[in-house]
Design a protein around this nucleic acid. Sequence first.
RNA 1: GGGCCCGUAGCUCAGCUUGGUGGAGCGCCCGGCUGAUAACCGGGAGGUCGGGGGUUCAAAUCCCCCCGGGCCCA
Length: 1052
Amino acid sequence: MQDRLSGEKYDQFMIEAEVKEFWEREKVYEQVRRRKGRKFYFLDGPPYASAKSIHVGTAWNKVIKDAVIRYHRMLGYSVWDKPGYDTHGLPIEVKIEQSLGIKSKKEIQSVGIDKFVEACKGFVKENMEAMSRQFAEIGASLDWENPYVTYENSYIESGWWLIKRAHERGLLYKGYKVLHWCPRCETVLADYEVSEYRELEDPSIYVKLPVRGREREYLLIWTTTPWTIPANVFVMAHPQIEYARVKVGDEVLILARQRLEEVMSEAGVSRYEVLESFPGSRLEGLEYDHPLEELVDVQRELRQYHRVVMAPEGVTAYEGTGLVHAASGHGTVDYEVASRLGMPIVSLVDEVGRMTREAGKYAGMHFREEANRAVEEDLRRKGALFHSSRLVHRYPVCWRCKTPLALRATEQWFIAVTKLRDELIREASSVEWVPEWARTRFMNMLEEVRDWAISRQRFWGIPLPVWVCRKCKKYHVVGSVQELRELGGEVPEDLHRPWIDRVIIRCPYCGGEAERVPDVLDVWFDSGVAFYASLGYPANRQLYEELEPADFIVEGHDQTRGWFFSLLRSGVIGFGKSPYRRVLVHGFALDEQGREMHKSLGNYVEFEELISKVPRDVVRLWLLSSTVWEDLRFSWKGLEQTARDFTVFWNTFVFASTYMSLDAFDPEESSIESVESYLEPVDRWLISRTNSLIAQYHEAMGGLRPHDAVRALRSFLLEDVSRFYVRLIRRRVWEERDTPSKRAAYATLYYALRAWLLLAAPIIPFLSEYIYQRFMRPAERGAALSVHMMLLPQPEKHRVDEKLEREVSLIRELAEEVLAARANAGLRLRRPVSKVIVVPKRRELAEAVSSLKDMLAELVNSKAVELESEAFLEGLRAYAVKPLLGEIGREFKKLTPEVLKLIEARGAEVAQAIAERGYFEAEVNGERVRLERRHLELVAEYPEWLVVRESELAIIAIDKRLSELEEAEGYAREVIRRAQHMRKEARLMIEDRVVLWVSGDKEMVEAVRKMEEFVKNEVRAVKVFYNMPEEGAFAREWEIDDKKVTIGIRRA
RNA sequence: GGGCCCGUAGCUCAGCUUGGUGGAGCGCCCGGCUGAUAACCGGGAGGUCGGGGGUUCAAAUCCCCCCGGGCCCA
């Protein structure tokens, strides 16, 4: 092997630049993609292309995807890796409005829809290019040249196909629905878009509705939206709640019994009398008059509907009066109850938030700002206002413009998803969810699924492919461009509005002219069809049929109700099945304090900044080490620590490369099979650990737990290889001659590092490629061009020795105890000790020590390790006793001083007796005294030359006594260490030989002389002189334990 | 108001599925090493396992309630 790693300073940034250049030059990605294998259809959740800079969370998202993709490629799969972009929708329209300085739909029309839509497209294009660049930067190996883009004609056409499918299945319908409406954006908001609430102040009024045919008797209702009173149709009550007729002054009010006290106290009424109480069911059918009947045109037609109906779903006993005023066009429940009972749907607010003509006196008023006040005033004048105040409550506002929303019945197009509920549940159950709780969350959501309002009264979106005949008023759904052409439509170059709006087709029913309904589709529709639209289906059926279903998707947990759902919905509508097999849910990237990262909060970390400060692999390893489905806290410190791990990764490979090349090691010639009989326990251990790692890694990656894989990889290289194995093989590796033992160590180390390098490739693609090119590829015939074209190793079960792994881990634990004992006794590690005695407390430890004695001895720098029984220590142990005054005083009373004297005088004897038989008897002042364990504290004492430490594993005793020779070795090592330091200072090469001078303190010089062969070998000296260094030699005076020594070296 | 998730050392996080002596890294203190070295190794201090209740011989772990945070809904 040739060393291509050492001698160069480790610079991860430089490495990444070079690797990138290599990938581009050799077209590695293209070659990786071209390889054939079993299909793995990965479907990219398209990020929304509304900004140029990606969020740390978006980067995390793509890094997870990339790790999974690379992993599958290295398993031999042919991975479908087309990325996507979500490009339509209101948020982008808003940005363009802002950049054009306009504020409403009307202004867009005056600018020209064509210009507006072109601006949207241009904006999105720039964003996509910037985002792709950043994704490629962190090494996301997706097909950035050919992403799927939701605004493309082919994609739009694929979208149309699903609307047509829905229509064919009888799921498409036009209906009224009460939905949140933004009067500023002039559009309906989907349920999940109603996400922002503000604390707003509103009126809180109690209104008296006169009961028809009874004098001075009223239904009492409560509302915070006076503007809905003109649209009142009926009143809802709960059949099981108790109601009361209450006399207040000369009037009678009807309200819930349970609400009585609170309502009266709020209204400041202290004197009232309950005339009778009864269940709500008795109120059914009770008619009333509308107090504003003569001011509101539509109310004259609604007279016949004004009555109390039973509607438990709309009434609670914890708020209001228990009687709920229903405005069928302005409340969700109101609408549902009205539909059920065949009541009319009345909506009196127009698209811009003004009261309609039917609202009579209030026509033209803004619903919140003006109508509220006017209605309240009129009610007061009519004597219908029982009480009025103000209240601050959470009120929904538009998520983009913060305008308070109105509930409003509007005409929209729907897909009857509720009809598909059972299918959805069946299909979702068959999906594998990681983690498992994602399934629970998803299922809970499906239980309450609603019909899907797909239409939007906007511009930048997939046009709704519905044409309505001017003559017969029937509508026709167009499923493709070809169909459009067949119906006589002139197909525009771009399928967006406004061009598509101008397409007139022939009505298939009456032959009349049909024009398009001007709506566009909900943007959630777009990404929901990605599973087939990104493959060009149905224009190109083959690709989809080959690839479906998607084998894997992964997005943040917010997408449960988002993309995961919209995909499933589209899958079931279009194909009757789930479009994906496995789902991984990842967390949110939060800031260092655990809050959401937002530009407006000033805690936003720019991706470009991140990547300029921290190498990509470091970012990746750090991101991937976080538990994937939990939220991630951004941390510069965490990244810094991760960067430090990389220096150890690097150093480990440099170490291997340096020595293997020095010894011309050839991994192909010296495989672990070829050195089998020379493998030492530590070698067999590392080989076993390597296979355990491989198994663990596959289990983690296969189970979509990349964090577990990363943690296993990290600890293997840091703990097992670098801090343990390399330390233990140093002596073998420094051996000058070519020994089988050294070769065995190299073979083992190469085997472990090779496996690690391959396993790490999906996680840290840059560094692993770099090291592969310089360490592995030149050493192996038939190694692929790139590490990413290699196959991952599979665990070889016969090489796993669980017993050995357990034993080594016990030995490591024990070694720590010994080191702790040494540290406590001030015995430095460099000085050997003559003997470590182990008295094991567990049988498996005894076995481990007896089979791995040498390993333990090496780890703790001891000349010998001996297993002994407790009896051995007992022989060396002496006990001191400490009387426990409390116990002794309580029992011996007046005799206590005498007893204490006895203990002091015959302490050793007392201790021995109690230790051996549990008691000691003697006569004191003529009385027989019996001392037991409870009277005394026994303190074990050992000879001065023995250091003892007891742990849960064993009792450890270290013999501090050193033989003369060992003492000399200790001193010699002190000299060696300093000579090594000087070699380094003198910039000698590792393989250079030197001449050494040692002079000064007699004991030191004598020690070196005794250990001369050892010293020469360690320092690579050809000769040692015991006098002052010659002129020109590199010399220095040292002080070691108060002894002065002069050391000199010169290259031989 | 509902569903799901999170809360463990000063900081970042394992451990919880399957109850049995609480772990790692960083930081801090002490010591060591110097042939991977702008590294590294060892030792030590540091914890009401968010709070309360329950089940159990035994709870960080299982159950219930509460508090704080996240996501999604109402």
